[in-house]
């Protein structure tokens, strides 16, 4: 799937995006609020959905080579996160959609013919 389409589906707002981010491919989606879970996940080019807003979220995403992070269930996020995302070069967005709803919407996208 294309990251841009997923971002649109969740009405997510960009916090930090590199050039040509619209072309980024996503291999799988992983939703969790436990960093330990993210670190044991096996997927590649993952889109990470989480409601955590600590700098460790971005750092962890970089460690596992995630394609992007969307912080869900948030109408705003701490200002320092944009800097962390820039340093780690991880595309970062936020969306007010709940984690469950975000998973359902993305799941339907995958099922669509």
């Amino acid at each position: 799937m294309i990251l841009k389409q997923m971002v649109d589906k969740l009405e997510a707002i960009p916090v930090y995006v590199p050039e040509n981010w619209e072309e980024i491919q996503v291999g799988s989606v992983f939703a969790s609020d436990l960093i330990s879970d993210i670190l044991v996940s096996e997927g590649e080019e993952q889109l990470l959905l989480t409601s955590l807003t600590t700098p460790q979220v971005v750092r962890t995403a970089a460690i596992v080579g995630a394609a992007a992070v969307i912080i869900v269930h948030r109408k705003q996020i701490p200002p320092g996160l944009a800097g962390s995302a820039r340093i780690e070069e991880i595309p970062l967005f936020y969306s007010s959609t709940s984690k469950y709803d975000a998973c359902v919407r993305l799941g339907k996208m995958e099922d669509a013919p």
Partner: peptide
């Protein structure tokens, strides 16, 4: 926790610079 992970980030950059395959970089960084 603010600074935890800095060493791993540097490790990742160093391995990338050396052309190590991404899957191995991922394991080392984890």
């Amino acid at each position: 926790f603010e600074h935890a992970g800095m060493a791993s980030a540097e490790l990742k950059r160093e391995l990338k610079k050396r052309g190590v395959p991404p899957k191995i970089i991922r394991r080392a960084a984890i």
